[in-house]
Design a protein around this nucleic acid. Structure first.
Length: 557
DNA sequence: GCGGATCAC
DNA sequence: TATGGTGATCCGC
């Protein structure tokens, strides 16, 4: 493992840009011995005439400048007295060491090449051919395809160039969800509080199970993997360690269907971390890796030797995160996977670039309708609206607005979004638009919105009738592309398969009181409508506002 | 609070 | 033949 990411790559004129083209193939499993130069060259050849390439080039240049600035600032720091920074860093290291919890057994389950494995299982004829699952970009590919340089995220046309006999399989998301549900089923008995992240990964805390049944973590995981294999036919990799960070790294340490246990002893952990490239740590992406590299940090051990510079150069948050990485610290509490914890709902859609206002408007309408559907599913409305426009030069612009009240209908969303889209287009008269996106945040339970209350008042029913006014109705419904794909909407809400793990640099987030459900016993009564309300101040005040304005409205009706 | 960025999958 | 979508968070202002 002497080869770190940075040093021994072939250097070419556009070397940093090339590196970005190699993408995850630089760090993922299945690419050992693959010619990374070939990947970069092929992608480069395919891309060099496109506007996308220009955009990437611009980004790369900006990042390079940032790195140069970092180097310069570090050089200046080196000339000054950094003793106080060093002392502070050591203090933080001591504190982190002190608070480190090594008592838990956390397991990371990684269904590597998940989509590909499922397909291969369902269709044995794929077993010995290189194939990729995906639509226009590769979502996953098997190991035979990886050997040729094919990787996730690659445009399929490019992948085919590198691997001419690549078979393409259309993704079947329902099937993947089904298999993931089976996997969850198998995990449940070892830790009902397991955490799912993404579509193909999960964490378990098996500490309790191990003590209660007097079994070693290693054996538990072996059985669990056997269970999963038996139930689903899927081979999974598992990492066992003291926290989720280390467990995740451990699982990537092993071949696709193996398991790896990192003993929870400080010395062993430190030795394990020592030579690890920082890029392999969750939370260190391509850009941070490059920035760190510019000041001489390639491995986790390097973090320590540069510790006196980190706070000044990267700020408190990142500084502390990096020290945690160096010490192998990480989260040990798992977060239950609940749909209701979602903080935003968004849709963005790429289409054939256009500058025709009517087409753009129609696309915006469709996006808004999909957001409406998503919010309906969550029974939420959102008070902050973010609209995003990406032009054909791949530059994107966004506008975020805090609205006077939460909205959820396609009509409302559309009306608030359109002005920004129009303004952006007017700003770029000679460009076409290729993507529109709409996101709502500051989600509140829909029962508390004014319109919902009003509707209740009018109909004396719990929920408003849908379809009453969906601004986009009559005209464009009969468009030739009438098949609106309801893509990723979930069927089972108990077992939501999509839940992101929070960035490791971030401390545990607080829970929005509005998002919890209350039992009637802890409710309070509203003095105006006399109905039960949640006991926390925020939502009660919100309710009061609604009630007051409603009684105003009634005066005039 | 806003806009741009980064990161993970 | 031509570079995706969702959700979360951070930084600087």
């Amino acid at each position: 493992m002497a080869s770190s990411t940075g040093s021994n790559q072939a250097i070419r004129p556009e070397s940093t840009l090339f590196k970005s083209f190699v993408g995850v193939a630089a760090i993922k499993k299945g690419y050992e011995g693959v010619d990374r130069d070939k990947i970069a060259r092929t992608v480069y050849e395919a891309a060099k005439v496109s506007l996308y390439f220009n955009h990437q080039q611009k980004r790369d240049q900006a990042l390079t400048e940032k790195c140069n600035a970092l180097m310069e600032r570090k050089r200046l720091l080196e000339e000054s007295d950094t003793t106080s920074q060093l002392v502070h860093a050591d203090k933080v290291v001591a504190r982190l060491k002190e608070n480190r919890d090594l008592s838990q057994s956390i397991v990371h389950i990684d269904c590597d090449a998940f989509y590909a494995s499922v397909e291969q299982n369902d269709r044995p004829e794929l077993k010995d051919v290189p194939f990729a699952v995906g639509d226009t970009v590769v979502a996953a590919c098997n190991y035979i395809a990886r050997k040729t340089g094919c990787r996730a995220g690659m445009v399929i046309a490019v992948a085919k160039k590198m691997c001419p006999n690549l078979t393409i399989v259309k993704p079947n998301h329902d099937r993947y969800r089904e298999v993931m549900a089976q996997i969850c089923n198998a995990m449940h008995k070892y830790d009902p509080g397991y955490e799912i992240c993404g579509t193909d990964e999960a964490y378990l805390n098996i500490t309790k199970y191990c003590t209660e049944c007097d079994i070693k973590p290693w054996d538990v995981v072996q059985t669990l993997r056997k269970d999963i294999r038996h139930e689903t036919g899927i081979a999974v990799a598992a990492g066992i360690a003291a926290n989720i960070q280390l467990a995740k790294i451990s699982s990537t340490f092993i071949k696709p269907d193996g398991q790896y246990q990192l003993p929870s002893e400080p010395d062993i952990i430190m030795a394990f971390i020592k030579d690890l490239p920082v890029r392999k740590v969750t939370g260190v992406g391509y850009t941070l890796d490059r920035q760190l590299g510019s000041i001489g940090i390639a491995t986790c051990e390097d973090i320590f030797s540069q510790r006196q510079f980190l706070r000044v150069l990267f700020g408190d948050r990142l500084f502390e995160f990096l020290l945690e990485v160096y010490l192998g610290c990480g989260r040990t509490e798992l977060q239950a996977t609940l749909e209701q914890q979602k903080k935003s709902a968004s849709i963005e859609r790429t289409f054939k670039e256009t500058s025709a206002p009517d087409i753009i408007e129609r696309n915006l309408r469709m996006v808004c309708e999909d957001v409406e559907a998503k919010l309906k599913e969550l029974n939420r409305a959102g008070q902050t609206l973010t609209v995003k426009v990406k032009m054909n030069d791949f530059e994107s612009y966004s506008k975020q607005t805090k609205l006077p009240k939460a909205i959820s209908s396609a009509r409302d969303i559309f009306q608030h979004s359109l002005p920004f889209v129009k303004a952006t287009l007017a700003d770029k008269p000679h460009q076409a638009c290729r993507l529109l996106g709409v996101r709502l945040t500051q989600l509140v339970s829909k029962d508390y919105t004014l319109s919902a209350a009003f509707e209740r008042m009018a109909h004396k029913s719990a929920y408003p009738k849908p379809d009453s006014l969906s601004g986009a109705k009559e005209e464009e419904r009969s468009s030739p592309t009438g098949k609106r794909k309801l893509g990723d909407d979930l069927e089972s809400r108990e077992l939501s398969p999509r839940k992101k793990i929070s960035n490791p640099a971030i401390k545990s987030p607080e829970i929005n009181p509005l998002e919890t459900s209350w039992c009637t016993s802890e409710m309070v009564r509203c003095p105006i409508c006399d109905q039960h309300q949640p006991p926390d101040n925020a939502s009660f005040n919100q309710h009061l506002d609604i009630c007051l304005s409603l009684s105003e409205i009634q005066k005039y009706s």
